[in-house]
């Protein structure tokens, strides 16, 4: 029931977001047809505006847009003629989503073992080195890692392709560039969780019973220590999916992210509103799912 209410609550939220984005792009000076054949005759511009209903009052345009949205139609793109926003999003979204999920897997795959290892070796050199690596990963943003990887591994040594999205081989560098930061974050969370768990009393009990260290670590400690990582995974996935557009720009990956900055600069009204709505919807739905999974994983969490 609680989640049903939360889900209903998302609809007005997304409406407000769409309205804000809708008004914001329209009050900005310039229009989508400024870069048309110059000098554009006034007739051409008037006809173009009439075709896309841009000559109507703002509230009427918004009502028309909402009516389209209700049918699942994001409208035509004003810059990429003969393409609807739906076309463009449907083409790019699978790429963006797979990049996000691959990076998610990568971040988990390096973060959890690193955090586990540094916690087990607490206070030793392996801990200091590993923790430093995790912190370093958190301090190197994707737009630094990406160009560095391209410069050395792709351009200099030719180990990887420089860009584009064709074979699995093409996915390696974007995956590292996007996932490294989050891998560091997960490692730090995992280390913290592991240290907290290892100082719990039931671990002392398990030691007193004479259980083998590997059993204690894997069977008793790990299961609880991984919970903070699990609860971070929802926001992480949302961050990866909405934050991937820089990496898409760096590696020229044909996802949806490459359109964000350009459409916004080109005043491609329908594209901008569509993209903002898409990202916002992804984020709020993922957050809702995270909250839902909390109550499934941890019976102590109850929602009124």
């Amino acid at each position: 029931m609680y989640f049903f209410k939360r889900a209903l609550y998302l609809i007005p939220l997304l409406l407000v977001i769409s309205f804000l984005a809708f008004v914001l792009v329209r009050v900005a000076p310039g229009g989508p047809f400024d870069k048309e054949r110059k000098p554009a005759s006034p007739e051409i511009e008037r006809n173009l505006k009439a075709k896309y209903h841009l000559d109507e009052p703002l509230w009427k345009q918004y009502a028309r847009y909402l009516a389209g949205l209700a049918r699942g139609d994001f409208g035509p793109s004003l810059k990429y003629r003969n393409h609807t926003v739906n076309d463009i999003l449907l083409q790019g979204l699978p790429v963006s989503l797979s990049l996000g999920f691959i990076a998610f897997g990568f971040a988990q795959a390096i973060g959890i073992p690193l955090g586990f290892y540094t916690a087990v070796r607490r206070g030793q050199w392996a801990d200091y080195g590993g923790s430093f690596l995790a912190l370093l990963a958190v301090c190197v943003p994707g737009f630094v890692v990406g160009p560095l990887l391209i410069m050395w591994l792709a351009v200099k040594f030719h180990w990887f392709p420089v860009g584009l999205w064709e074979t699995p081989w093409h996915a390696v560098l974007p995956m590292v560039a996007l996932g490294l930061y989050f891998g560091g974050k997960i490692a730090r969370l995992m280390r913290e969780g592991m240290l907290n768990t290892l100082s719990a009393e039931y671990i002392t009990t398990a030691r007193a019973k004479g259980l083998r260290e590997s059993v204690i670590l894997w069977k008793h400690a790990f299961r609880l220590a991984v919970l903070p990582v699990l609860s971070y995974s929802g926001p992480l996935l949302a961050d990866l999916l909405t934050g991937s557009f820089v990496v898409e720009n760096i590696f020229q990956i044909p996802g949806v992210g490459v359109f964000l900055v350009n459409s916004s600069l080109n005043r491609d009204y329908t594209m901008v509103v569509g993209l903002v709505l898409l990202y916002a919807a992804l984020l709020v739905v993922l957050n809702l799912l995270v909250d839902l999974s909390y109550s499934l994983l941890d019976p102590r969490v109850k929602h009124e």
């Binding site: 914001l24 900005a28 909405t242 900055v261």
Partner: peptide, 12 residues
Amino acid sequence: PSIIFVIVLITT
């Protein structure tokens, strides 16, 4: 998505 909003804000 704050990044997205800041980008749209700046460009517009």
